[in-house]
């Protein structure tokens, strides 16, 4: 198998893409941590809040999705 040579530029692009996904995933995690705790607390008081709590908890998931979109855009730059 012929060794494929990957240029430094392509490598940097890959690192950029991974940072975009990874950092946003951490941000999402931090945001969901706080919301999730509060949602569980609210649910302990009033069980009907399960639905709303669940929805509120997944709201920050947008952040990582934006990260993913950016990553795809960056990879698109590599061609």
């Amino acid at each position: 198998m012929a060794a494929e040579v990957i240029g430094v530029g392509t490598g940097l692009i890959a690192i950029g893409a991974s940072l975009a996904v990874g950092l946003t995933a951490i941000a999402t995690g931090m945001a969901e941590q706080a919301i999730g705790t509060a949602a569980i607390g609210a649910m302990a008081e009033k069980e009907e809040l399960f639905g709303k709590g669940l929805i509120l908890t997944v709201i920050p998931e947008s952040i990582v999705i934006f990260g993913l979109v950016v990553a795809i855009l960056i990879i698109g730059m590599a061609g």
Binding site: E61, S62, V64, I65, F66, L68, V69
Partner: peptide, 12 residues
Amino acid sequence: ISNILSYARLMA
């Protein structure tokens, strides 16, 4: 824009 981009979750 961010609302529209949010639909990228359908892909993700």
